[in-house]
Design a protein around this nucleic acid. Sequence first.
DNA 1: CAGTGGTCTAGACCACTCG
DNA 2: GAGTGGTCTAGACCACTGA
Lengths: 234, 234
Amino acid sequence: MTQPGETTSYRDIKRTVLERIRSGTWRPDTLLPNEQELAVEFSCTRTTVNRALRELAEEGFLERRRKAGTRVLSAPQRQARFTIPLVRDEVEAGGGQYRYALVSAELQPAPEWLSARLQLRAAQEVMHVRCMHYSSNTPFQYEDRWIVAESVPQVAQADFSATGPNDWLVQTVPFTNVELTFLASRADATLAGFLDMPEGEPVFTAERTTWLQGRPVTFAKLYFGAGYRMTTQI
Amino acid sequence: MTQPGETTSYRDIKRTVLERIRSGTWRPDTLLPNEQELAVEFSCTRTTVNRALRELAEEGFLERRRKAGTRVLSAPQRQARFTIPLVRDEVEAGGGQYRYALVSAELQPAPEWLSARLQLRAAQEVMHVRCMHYSSNTPFQYEDRWIVAESVPQVAQADFSATGPNDWLVQTVPFTNVELTFLASRADATLAGFLDMPEGEPVFTAERTTWLQGRPVTFAKLYFGAGYRMTTQI
DNA sequence: CAGTGGTCTAGACCACTCG
DNA sequence: GAGTGGTCTAGACCACTGA
């Protein structure tokens, strides 16, 4: 397989293993030879085999357990990976010209549903920001966001007239934990107005809840314009 | 930092690096010390540092380039990772009892829109399968799927009365390439009937197009029942 | 308890790319 | 051209876990 003078790389091994799975040489549930044996077969070190198999396991093709060995997964755990872009990047990637517009921004006591959701104290102060993102003047996304003032005190002085709250947060509170949810919701009158669609239309919606070391930072509802599709290759 | 007798693991390094980023010690765009220097600091080998930084780069925190070095990304490229479960697993994970029901399955010439989408020859034969997935007898998902007979000849003999086409395909044609799209669509009369919801309701929808080494295998529209949410932690 | 993968060391050569 | 990360080798010890 490997010519003299060539070295076997972990990529070669990954490719070969995948091919054996695809071709049915190693069917689902098959136990692979152990790393030592594969190292001999591929004439490389166990380290190299290890890296190949480790990555394949991480990609959802194999299952590895000490002592039990490495097994072909019966149903490959395919994972969709979405990179979450900033809205501006997403618009520009689509060939549009990005424009931002603030709708409203005000400090207010958290509504009850938000307090429940983020485990806030009753009526804790939050900054409520609503804004629009346009792609070449076509409505792209309506954003409805709450930022917990106690967790991000600077928010009281923040100016969202030119910059969106997400951009601001990324600069101010980087590296948070995020819970992301996708759903289909229904355009009410307000939303239909902002997104320029008939009332009652389905709207692709994302909800992002963000925490910084256990403390709630922000909750955002992102409503995407008509025809929005989120696509990924696996 | 490391006590004598302890070894520094790549996990320790990852944690420390993340902490320095979080705390602002290494701000966005900062150039990190090179691997050799970090190896000295952490008193370990460059190999170990390499693994730590490589993984952090893959997770979207760092950018690495030869000669240029390793840099903190200004906007961390957070990635959402969804594991795509089999419907049955998804239902059972939600505590429901899974039930499958075939609606129809017939060989037919591909409709024009499908031929265009999958680059088929005109009127090429496809198996059209429609079926329902229930969670404890509540509609969970309506599946509308086309399977290209030329790419999967066995489909002509397949029996979808007891097993869903996805289960069958996973067994028959594993390890394909997939394009996955999420969108919000609108329940027409048929869909509203199957999913037991009022007509016109928003429906969370996934489209999966599957290829095997460049040849189109299947296209599926998956319509999820009322209130469906797809959630992930990042 | 024995077999398997998980990880680390020490050293080397190489590929890429910035200046 | 020279500095950086990318990868491989050879060997070792260890953690976990199945039989």
